[in-house]
Amino acid sequence: MNIPNYSYSQQTADGEKGPGDYTIEQLRMAQDFSLPAVKKVLATIPVQKPDRQVFFRVCPEESYRIQAATLDIRANRETYIVLPEVAEEIQDVIRIQTLYLGVTRQEDIFIFPVTLPGVDGKDNPWNESSREAAERAMTKWVRMSADMAAGCYKIYEALGELPEPVWPDHTFQQILNVAFKNRVIDSLEHPVLQQLRGEL
């Protein structure tokens, strides 16, 4: 049996390549799929305390946290952001919170709201421990769970050497826009406030 070698290396007389003139390297096509064909869309971003079983990190960059007035509607488990001009008028129902950007080990991002002390400077152990958890989570993977007997959150640091988190390439403004989409109270006539006043 002798099959002659098959050559891809010959050129035609005028220098143009014929189909039999390619080297195998020249026929090779890239397989890197380097340009992702789709971009992950931020459709929903939860505003919540992290689950007690989930380790999370908080973005340490200052541009990724904000102090804002929020309003919790517990019946619907919804958190609204209240614009400052409205917040001044309804101080009795709102809370001033720091909104942090958090991320889980599964690379799911969330807004972690932590309540600041009241105008009188009064704080409570739940808020204090939440704040401590957020600050620790800027450098370590932590999880927090409620300790009802002690009246605060217990904070646990991951023991393993876990890799650094992957942060989204969106601005914090873009993230907040998604997190509070349709949940911005920008006037006293907002239906949520009307409901609270018993007008609806």
Partner: peptide
Amino acid sequence: RQTYKRFWQWSDNVLDFAMTRGYLQTVFG
């Protein structure tokens, strides 16, 4: 997934490429 992040990103891209372009191809077509 954590150790071979780039592989997993590439694998996700393969899937996305296939579903958006409608085909996959080897190095020699």
